[in-house]
Design a protein around this nucleic acid. Structure first.
Lengths: 191, 191
DNA sequence: TCTTCCATGTAACGCGTTACATGATTTT
DNA sequence: AAAATCATGTAACGCGTTACATGGAAGA
């Protein structure tokens, strides 16, 4: 019933997880939060900059000033040893099952109120999205295999491979589900 | 890039979707938001009561006072014809792909920082959760089959069956993924 | 010339969660 | 006797998104 204490927020875990892999500026973090972290978590730059300040105040990251390509100076952040310890604790902490928030399925739950053609369109669009994401995941997995570090369980590429494999299986299941639904809709609408 | 206009919020869609199936009080709506709607969307009673007021102000629901079992009088809400139209529009609206927010996978992405034993425990707990939810879904699916209305595409049970089937496939894929990860961890840790 | 990319931040707003508030009936 | 269920609401708080703000360099 109670979640194990861990002073890191979800966002803090995401940012530290990126910095533990390599040093980055706030801007680079924001881009990484689009892809590949965006495959399972998202955050805009307006969240990241304040979070970096909080993490630095807590001694979990530190920064050096570097010359930026933009008009301002850039700050390149790195994870401290205290930061790595906090990250480890956060990863290992007990976590009670997270509630699902799936807007697509929520809409689908009321699909009995609309005409069969509308339902069909809905599922078709959903199938296309899942299929496109699946393709992107497969490309990304190929890139990880190419680097050759994906077998050692303490290498970042190993963890990337685990998460990608999960995404691939998830999307594959979703595509198959959509195909199954299209069949059910055709059968129900067919007579 | 732009989402089709629909004056209903997500929460409004969830509430109207419930009321389109049958009349309910605020309390009953809150319980239904735990199960079965909680399988893909959640909302507490503190969200639902204000939302009902908003929907009523917009003419999408109306209420009758009924005798409550609690100390207060109860209000039993029903979806109006304008509400049903709004729900149909909301279901059929274009919706751009939703970002994923999966805390479990986010943590897994940093699993390379912890000891192999910790990683193993993490995946095992995750597997257990998915397996338990899968069992619950299968029971629920059996109940829907028992009612016998699940083949008509304009019956609520039809839509419930589609969403449940999706949940079952999703969880099944998740359990298999966890088993696969346990194998990978054993192989990586074994030498 | 216009748009996009680089690069950093602040401010306002909305949704969702937690805590607070009340109190009768039913179950343990 | 204590706890959970029934039943409705308000208030405070935190996280995430959108809008605002600045401005140089590179590409279309």
């Amino acid at each position: 019933m109670m979640e194990q204490a861990s002073n890191l927020s979800h966002l803090g875990g995401a940012v530290l997880g990126l910095l533990a892999r390599k040093e980055r500026t706030g801007y680079e973090l924001a881009r990484a939060m689009e892809r590949p972290v965006g495959y399972f978590w998202t955050a805009g730059h307006t969240q990241i900059y304040p979070e970096l300040a909080r993490l630095e105040a807590a001694g979990l990251v530190r920064h050096r000033d570097v010359a930026g390509r933009g008009p301002r100076q850039s700050k390149r952040y790195a994870c401290t040893s205290a930061g790595l310890r906090a990250l480890r604790e956060w990863v290992g902490a007990d976590l009670d099952p997270q509630p699902v928030r799936d807007l697509e399925t929520l809409r689908l739950w009321s699909v009995w109120t609309v005409a069969p053609g509308v339902a069909d369109q809905l599922v078709r669009r959903s199938r296309d999205t899942h299929a496109r994401v699946l393709e992107a995941y497969l490309v990304e997995l190929g890139e990880i295999f190419a680097t050759g570090h994906h077998r050692a369980s303490t290498h970042p590429d190993f963890a990337s491979r685990l998460t990608l494999e999960g995404g691939i299986r998830q999307r594959r299941a979703a595509v198959e589900w959509c195909d199954w639904m299209l069949g059910e809709l055709a059968r129900a609408g067919g007579h």
